[in-house]
């Protein structure tokens, strides 16, 4: 598991980025925490910098929205899903269990 931050450092509506093998973004949607790959599947943009609206994160560069629950894009230009990861909270600390899924960009889950 990768340590992310203290729970209090990730308030509602905010996001943090952590460096793993690939960068991962963790979001707080009304108290529910979600983790996905941070880099947009379209081009080079960090989704932690995106606009959060409910469970959708809008990419800051070309505005594709990804569903944090599934990782799926809801529209173009991105076509491929981002990986989702399990978030674990222990002793007021946020961790991410990086998904070992070998889901390749391009496969639709």
């Amino acid at each position: 598991m990768i340590p992310v931050c203290a729970v209090r450092d990730l308030p509602v509506g905010e996001a943090v980025r952590v460096e793993a093998d690939v960068p991962i973004a963790v979001f707080n949607v009304d108290g529910e925490l979600y983790a996905i790959d941070d880099t947009c599947t379209h081009q080079d943009a960090s989704l932690a910098d995106g606009w959060l609206e409910g469970c959708l994160i809008e990419c800051p560069l070309h505005a594709t929205c990804f569903d944090l629950r599934t990782g799926n894009p809801t529209g173009p230009p991105a076509k491929k899903p981002v990986r989702t990861h399990e978030v674990v909270v222990e002793n007021d600390h946020v961790y991410v269990r990086v998904s070992t899924s070998i889901l390749q960009h391009g496969d639709v889950a």
Binding site: A45, A48, D49, G50, W51, E58, P60
Partner: peptide, 10 residues
């Protein structure tokens, strides 16, 4: 400032 831009453009 991509994140701030997302707010300001709105």
């Amino acid at each position: 400032q991509p994140k701030l831009f997302g707010r300001l453009r709105r």
